[in-house]
Amino acid sequence: MRRWLVSGLAGALLLAGPAWSADVPPGGPPGASSCTGCHSGAKIADVVIPRIAGRKAEDIVTFMREYRSGAWPSSVMGRIAKGFDDQQTQAIAAWFAAQPE
């Protein structure tokens, strides 16, 4: 009985995994893996650059749009945001929103 439950659970996870990841390359949509060079995936001390994992996707999209337009002042993010269109930005934002905060 217990074995059946465990394998049933594993089966469910397997089904859930591919259905979710079918359109997203391993490691995230194009551009996402570069972000963690500055925006730490793990929680570490003494950093001034905020983490973006687990933030709301719409917030990330809004920031990127405002960086791109210059409405929100930035040092480097305005220059980077200009390299991504809305669709690419939304895919990256959804990816980080789904990561553990």
Binding site: P25, S33, S34, T36, V76, F84
Partner: peptide
């Protein structure tokens, strides 16, 4: 950045799939 893109591409290549075009950032 290149290494993370390469690792993700290797996941696809080792499974016999094609890797998607990446975007990379340098700062």
């Amino acid at each position: 950045a290149q290494a993370k893109v390469c690792a993700a591409a290797l996941v696809e290549l080792l499974a016999g799939r094609k890797a998607a075009d990446p975007i990379l950032i340098n700062t």
